[in-house]
Design a protein around this nucleic acid. Sequence first.
DNA 1: AGCCAGGCCCTCC
DNA 2: GGAGGGCCTGGC
Length: 299
Amino acid sequence: MLLPIHQPFDLHSTLFSGQAFRWRPNGDWSEGIVFNNVVRLRHVEGGIEFLSAPDDEAALESLIRDYLGLDRDIEGVYGSLELDDRLTASIARYKGMRILRQDPWECLVSFLMAQASNIPRITKNVEDICKTFGRPIEVSARAEPFGGAQDRPVEARPHGFPTPSELARATVDALWDLRLGYRARFISAAAQAVDSGKVDLMALREDPYEAALDTLMSLDGVGDKVANCVLLFSLDKMEAFPVDVWIERALQEWYLNGKGQKLTRPKMRLWAHDYFGVYAGYANHYLFHDRRLQGKTSS
DNA sequence: AGCCAGGCCCTCC
DNA sequence: GGAGGGCCTGGC
């Protein structure tokens, strides 16, 4: 199925800029697991083509459009971010890179795992937790879009992301065995909190930024950075501004040194909100991605 | 060997 | 409220 697009869209940068961890390049397609489906996406003339199984494309279309943010006005975002040459250069370089609208539960667990880690390891941890606790996806129910996919051995079958209830039933020891380290108990506690209804992640989409931030940070192991990742990548808070080491260096060298300012991380977020405005999160992701790929000499 | 990763938490000042 | 150390694990 073709999803027409009318504004800049950079599929590769969107899927592989470190906001989601279940996408893999596969020829000219990108294949990922979302909404308990195997999904393939590729950029073609006029839009994004996609295939899915076991659900058919018509059933998944609106979820995928929503996930990719196809209906968002990215030109409007760019218009409000014409602030300085540094940011303009990053946007030009990755024009069309979008902020995904992910499932908040998967997003929360993924970024709990991400602390003091790196993308290859996070990717492996996410894969392991899905294989161990997630439900296998029966692509064979609809094999034609993925010729041969039904022949995968059972143990190689793709798995959906475990639900809060599935992870709430997992013991800390079982999580520990996945080599998650001290993050295991954070994930277990988060699963209890969400499964019990103590925290309603989806409801946070309706809450203002500050309130949603407070709720997330009440969870053990969720600090300012993790909370802002969840707010930005899954909860529609475009002003969210995760400050990790990359952003810390980028802001310090590209924006603050000249002014002789030295800020702590929470202060950096406040500074960024003042400077970048309501779309600070987009500015964050472009600077983050640029900084990681181009390095510190980029200008 | 020792340091540091896409942090967070606790302690101490 | 800010600085410093510890923490699982993995990679250099």
